[in-house]
Design a protein around this nucleic acid. Sequence first.
DNA 1: ATAGGGTTAG
Length: 569
Amino acid sequence: MMTRSSSRLHSFIKLNCNFITNSVRIPLSSSRFTPHSTSLPSLLHSNSFAYNGDRPLLSRYQKVTKLDDAFNLFDEMIQRKPLPSLIKFNQLLNAVAKMKHFSSCLHLFKQMCVTGVPVSEYSMNIAIRCCCQMSRTNDGFALLGCCFRRALVPDVFTFSTLLDGLICEDRIIEAERLFKKLIKHRLCEPNVVTYNTMIKGLCKFGNNDIAIGLLRLMDERGCKPNTVVYNTVIDSLCKDKMIEDAFKLCNEMVFAKGIQPDVITYNSLIHGLCNLCRWDEVSKLLKEMEEDVRISPDLQTFNILVDAFCKEGMVDEAEAVIDIMVERGVVPNIVTYNSLIDGYCLRGEMTKARSLFDSLTSKGLVPNVVTYNSLLNGYCKSLKIEEAMHMFHEITRKGLKPDIVSYSTMLQGLFRVGRCGEARKLFDEMRSQGLIPDECTYRIILDGLCNNHQVEDVLSLFHLVGDSKLNYDIQVYNILIDGMSKCGKLDIARDLFQYLTVKGLQPNVRTYTVMVSGLCGEGLLKEANHLFRKMGESGCPPDGVTYNVLLQGYLKKQNYDDVKMLLQC
DNA sequence: ATAGGGTTAG
């Protein structure tokens, strides 16, 4: 017999057949005969296989900290007669999932199914969550189909989890479709978590307005938004530099809804203000935070401040923040010091950066790849390429793996000192490590080749990339137009500039400026001036740099009348 | 049980 809700479910699953793959693949790594199990003998020699009553078992499954323990416990559990309660199995599954051994957790779940241990909605939800956390949401849907055949009815937890999975995989269209379907087919009533998940997805794709609309809608539908929901939107607005809207929403939350902000609300707002260098307001917010007895700045608050000061070159202020946090008993972590190291590096204070780096161990902190990358960048910018290379090799020696940023930084450094051959070798090494260059790597290489006058290589690399996303990156064109001009290939630069229109790419101020600069370099002042005038009409008015470039062009040609004109307008 | 910040680096 099919209940009303289960028949709805059936049609839901049919409708979503595109979500569903044939079966759930359990990867080999989920096998228990993996390196994880190597310490099995120690457990064998202990009394773990002896039946030792319910008490020790009960206390053990609650604190499973190792995967081996979990598997051994599971073996014991399925052999017991009568079987331990489903709750215990679920707690074990949950423990394994919490340890982030998702495929192992799925493996156990599958074992439960095949050995006839009853499974509940709760077990299914854990298993589905594992799929989603492994970015295999499709498998989650497949699992839902399997469970449906076992008469398990998905609930709001199931759907919230699947919705989150889709959003984590950037499948926003499908997420929206699922969300609408939940409501339309009354598969479950979305709760505050479901709404927040959908709102997060909308924000992630820049749809802040729609997200706010959904926030209003949930309220109308009788689901009161809480601090988390408001924080989700406030943070997104701050990230998109819409700080006024963020404050508006925050005020609404406090004064109209009576919901108090928490430290996360403050951190989002402070971060947003820092990004806009609105320091007065930052300190106002900090003061407000101090006055609120419920809230005090936490590690993240301080890290935001340290990082913001460092990025602005205000390293002394950053150091002062660290002193204050220490005074207050907030312990700086590696993120704190990474920002400070980066601050020193950006100012070329490599001795300071290095000595801070060397002192990390005594602070009980372990440098990570980010730490090294800052140092690499610092040494490269100071043209201390040998030091940089030394650090680069140290990454591997310390058991870390250089990432795409490490390689890109080194490439930039090598190009800067004209060591193109070594750059090429490093690039090949990077590829052999399975690292895929991203748009930033690509820009660095193109820029490096241009600056080293390797015109042919630049163009062949550009054509090699073909119709990829990188070919639609305006910054790439800026580099190429500038590079070609400087290599004396103004015709190519011009062609590229023309080509933008064909591509449907919008030139920005920098594009125009490099083109103006290129034309001035060849003494083509009329054409440069024409382009300069065109900028305003194209909705992209020239900035100080463009102005200077043109001015210098006139000065070089001793066109003093034009200089006068330019200075007057 | 399912949700919000941080993530610092090219």
